[in-house]
């Protein structure tokens, strides 16, 4: 029982990182119908920027904020310069962002090298705390779970309770009708691209604190956030949360039961969801 709870908690904390990465992707996907394959690159770049800021200032929060801002702005620039013109052409945008991802990955390899780096975290917080029913558990993983829940709630409030959020929701449902009512969707698109990229950059710092940052992590996180978004449903923040929890729990449970098949089962989850509910768990069919 103790192990079951422990593995569940591991799955949930892993899901926290997946959720942070995938929430940005689901916003961009859902609203803009744009498949950005540079999302994993944004994650890794955010991690590296956070690593540099934390190394220079010793302030973790500043690193997370700086990385989110920098990657968000970069995302905005990429959207304005490269994507805006071809926004209605899925395949072209996918190929452009794939190109950005490949170039970005190689630039990061040249700058930060191929060895593992990790965002520093105050040693005083690198301790275990007593969790009822589980025993000693790393505080850092609980904090990341907390950060993720707070971000999730803020995002939900932002989408559901603000005027901008209602425009975004309208855009998710029908961007052409939204434009026809006089909303400048181009500005909304730019803002969403900024927000989505900033979330990826922030996730990079959070993930880079828990796991090492390395070339190759970009592809891994892109793939997992695609799975999370497909399982949860495009454009839905609660969907991204449900998808992340499912992917996190399934991958951790299979690591215990059948470690060899951990990856296969995670992707099988996506296949099953697509077969039963093609629009994703929280997605709405149009």
């Amino acid at each position: 029982m103790e192990q079951f709870l422990l593995v569940t908690l591991n799955g949930l904390t892993l899901a926290a990182v997946y959720f942070l990465v995938a929430s940005g992707l689901t916003l961009i996907f859902g609203l803009m119908r744009v498949i950005t394959l540079a999302h994993g690159t944004s994650y890794l770049l955010g991690g590296y920027i956070g690593y540099v800021i934390v190394r220079e200032t010793g302030n973790w929060a500043l690193g997370a904020l700086g990385a989110a801002l920098a990657v968000g702005l970069l995302g905005l620039v990429i959207h304005q310069l490269l994507i805006r013109k071809f926004q209605d052409d899925d395949m072209r945008v996918a190929l452009i962002t794939l190109g950005v991802a490949l170039i970005g990955t190689d630039l990061m390899l040249a700058t930060f090298g191929g060895t593992a780096t990790q965002v520093a975290f105050p040693a005083a917080l690198q301790i275990g705390v007593n969790v009822p029913g589980v025993g000693q558990y790393p505080l850092i993983r609980l904090m990341i779970l907390g950060i993720s829940i707070v971000v999730g709630i803020l995002l939900s409030l932002f989408i559901n309770r603000t005027r901008f959020g209602s425009i975004v929701r309208a855009g998710v449902d029908d961007s052409q009708m939204t434009a026809a009512t006089g909303v400048n969707v181009r500005i909304v698109f730019g803002a969403i691209f900024f927000l989505g990229s900033a979330l990826a950059g922030f996730a990079g710092v959070v993930g880079g604190t828990l796991f090492p940052l390395l070339p190759g992590q970009d592809g891994t996180y892109l793939l997992f956030s695609l799975v999370v978004v497909i399982v949860g449903g495009m454009g839905s923040i609660p969907g991204a949360a449900i998808g992340a929890v499912l992917v996190g729990l399934v991958s951790q449970y299979t690591l215990v039961i059948a470690p060899t098949y951990a990856l296969v089962v995670t992707f099988a989850l996506m296949v099953v969801v697509l077969a039963i509910r093609p629009q994703g768990i929280m997605g709405r069919a149009v």
């Binding site: 052409q176 891994t220 497909i230």
Partner: peptide, 26 residues
């Protein structure tokens, strides 16, 4: 502007996931 359905998007995502796998795995 052409209207797009989410179904079409999903197949596009699947194609793109394949591209990612190819690009990062090979």
């Amino acid at each position: 502007m052409t209207l797009k359905t989410k179904k079409g998007m999903l197949s596009a995502i699947a194609v793109c996931a394949a591209i990612v796998l190819t690009a990062t795995g090979c």
